[in-house]
């Protein structure tokens, strides 16, 4: 079983703060991490390898510093890691990104072999679009299974896989033939501590660099210029003013709050 996991390196969104003076994000000192949803995709692929044999490849598109994310992926049990990095990709929207990742994946397939399961996170925490996984599946023309919460059954002989996925207000179990593309929820698995042999192997395995010259990527489908969506402007949402602190005894506080919201309750017809 050969898995190919798409991972993105993202700034830890929980630590990003806004500078309201300049209307920009403060990124200094914010650590870059593997998109949290993608770590569960790596873990799922490694668990399948541990059970059925095979290998796990990981592909990340990003700036040169994203090789850190790939080193972490190796420590989690990945076997082959690829960094797709080129200026021509800068400013790509999700359509252009899924194209670049699809084209980059062709190279991985050429080097490592055909893929049985493609994996992506359910969404990236910086952009939150959840569009890249579905986009890649479409380009490969393989069945898409989003929001996976359980890998129920893998049948390498019949080349079929059963997956439980989240629905609004429930779950469904679907069966698809391999190859397929699965996007992962955090509840899919628990990330294990990296076993020592993985760590040793990680230190020895190089990150393979891919770019527009050593792949068949068509630069006319990548980057800002070739992305259908463009950013017109980016701005920080108006800051809510810090309000009033209500003080006093418990009774006083609750009475004051009531007096404050009474006009609104009247307007709502509740009083």
């Amino acid at each position: 079983m050969h898995s190919l996991v798409f991972i993105k390196q993202v700034p830890d969104a929980a630590q990003v703060r806004v500078d309201y003076e300049t209307g920009t994000l403060i990124r200094e000192g914010v650590p870059a991490i593997i998109n949290p949803f993608d770590t569960h995709a790596i873990e799922a692929a490694v668990q399948i390898k541990d059970k059925f044999g095979g290998s796990v490849s990981v592909l990340c598109m990003g700036p040169p510093m994203a090789d850190e994310a790939l080193k972490k992926a190796l420590a989690m049990g990945a076997d082959n890691v690829f960094l797709l990095s080129d200026r021509v990709f800068a400013g790509s929207d999700t359509l252009a990104t899924s194209y670049a990742l699809w084209a980059g994946a062709q190279k991985v397939i050429q080097e490592v072999g055909p893929v049985d399961i493609f994996w992506a996170g359910k969404q990236a925490i910086d952009g939150d679009t959840a569009q890249t996984g579905p986009g890649i599946a479409t380009r490969f023309d393989v069945p898409l299974v989003t929001y996976a919460v359980e890998i129920k059954e893998v049948d390498p002989q019949a080349r079929k896989i059963k997956i439980v996925r989240l629905l609004e207000g429930g779950t469904e179990t679907v069966e698809v033939p391999m190859p397929c593309l699965i996007t992962t929820e955090e509840t899919l698995n628990h990330i294990r501590f990296a076993p020592l042999p993985y760590l040793i192997k990680a230190a020895r395995t190089p990150v393979v660099l891919l770019n527009s010259s050593n792949t068949t990527i068509d630069a006319s489908q990548c980057g800002l210029k070739n992305s259908p969506t463009k950013v017109k402007k980016a701005f920080t949402p108006p800051k809510r003013e810090r309000g009033e602190m209500i003080e006093g005894s418990l009774d006083e506080i609750v009475n004051t709050v009531y007096a404050k919201i009474e006009p609104m309750l009247k307007q709502l017809g509740k009083v």
């Binding site: 990003v16 806004v18 994000l25 952009g127 939150d128 463009k230 017109k232 980016a234 701005f235 949402p237």
Partner: peptide
């Protein structure tokens, strides 16, 4: 013009699709 939050709502972006 499509406006959406990114970075957990810390930044808003207005997106358009001209062509």
């Amino acid at each position: 013009l499509m406006t959406r939050p990114t970075f957990g709502g810390n930044l808003m972006a207005t997106i358009f699709c001209p062509d």
